[in-house]
Amino acid sequence: MAEGQLALDERAVAYVEDPLWRWRGLIRLGRDLLRDKVALVGALIVLTVVVSALLAPVISPYDPTSGHIGQRLEAPGFVNEKGERYILGTDQQGRDVLSRLIYGARVSLMVGVGVIAIAGTVGTAAGLISGYYGGRVDDLIMRIVDTQTAFPGLLLALVIITMIGPSARNIIIVLSINGWMVFARITRGIMLTIREKDYIDAARLIGANDFRIIFRHAFPNLISPTLTILTLELARIILAEASLSFLGLGIQPPQSSWGLMIADGRDYITIASWLVTFPGLSIALTVFGVMTVANWLRTVADPEQRVKAAPAGTGSG
């Protein structure tokens, strides 16, 4: 018995002494990703978009907001007399489409990350409180969630944007107001089951306060399901921002956004279809990438899902 214990301790020590032990989980995730081809493609797309967004000023060939009116609506591959190449052509103001796409990635990600940061924090906090305390607090929060879920979300978002004025910041506010309920529901559901677990009772017995129990003991269980929802929500929000900008109630010119580019290019669709094609492809590919990653995260977190592995967008709204 004692010997067995010793062997176990030695193995534990060996494990901890391995310089890579902290990264083992990540390494396993990486291997898993390499095996899943579709998820790998998705992850590469997401990586490309993220890098473009971060390095936009470095990698974009031209200024996205100024162009030469003399070279408007030139087809992809156009080279002007100075020898400057426009790989994806120019728009109705002679601006480089590729540079505008790269800066558009920035807007999409900024809005997406901003919204999931705000909505995710507020929603998760509400869900934690609701699920942990139960009773009247739970009733109140869930009543608000139910009522707001029955609201016509997009329509209200449009109305609010009209009143407070369209801008990247206001889009983030409006979409956050619209999106916190998913997080509250999921978190509450998990919290309700965790609350009954023995280790929570144990924590309470040794005198841990509510704050400590919620954040040290319950919260770690939420990370994996919340991560999946966060990614799915990111995909939904990228689409929502594109729709708002397309309707003229999102990002305003001369700033660049994929939805805005499609709205601007719409009038030229028969003579310069690349103005509409490329931004649309960018949105579709990005959303595809994000959803595949979300899906992969779900199969990693729940191996039972692996058998079915249906790429499903379960994000609401």
């Binding site: 689409l239 594109a242 729709s243 939805g259 499609i262 509409v276 579709a284 959303v287």
Partner: peptide, 13 residues
């Protein structure tokens, strides 16, 4: 999956 990813206004155009 494409049906879910493609923005509707773009598909329309």
């Amino acid at each position: 999956l494409l049906g879910v990813c493609i923005p509707d206004f773009w598909l329309g155009l």
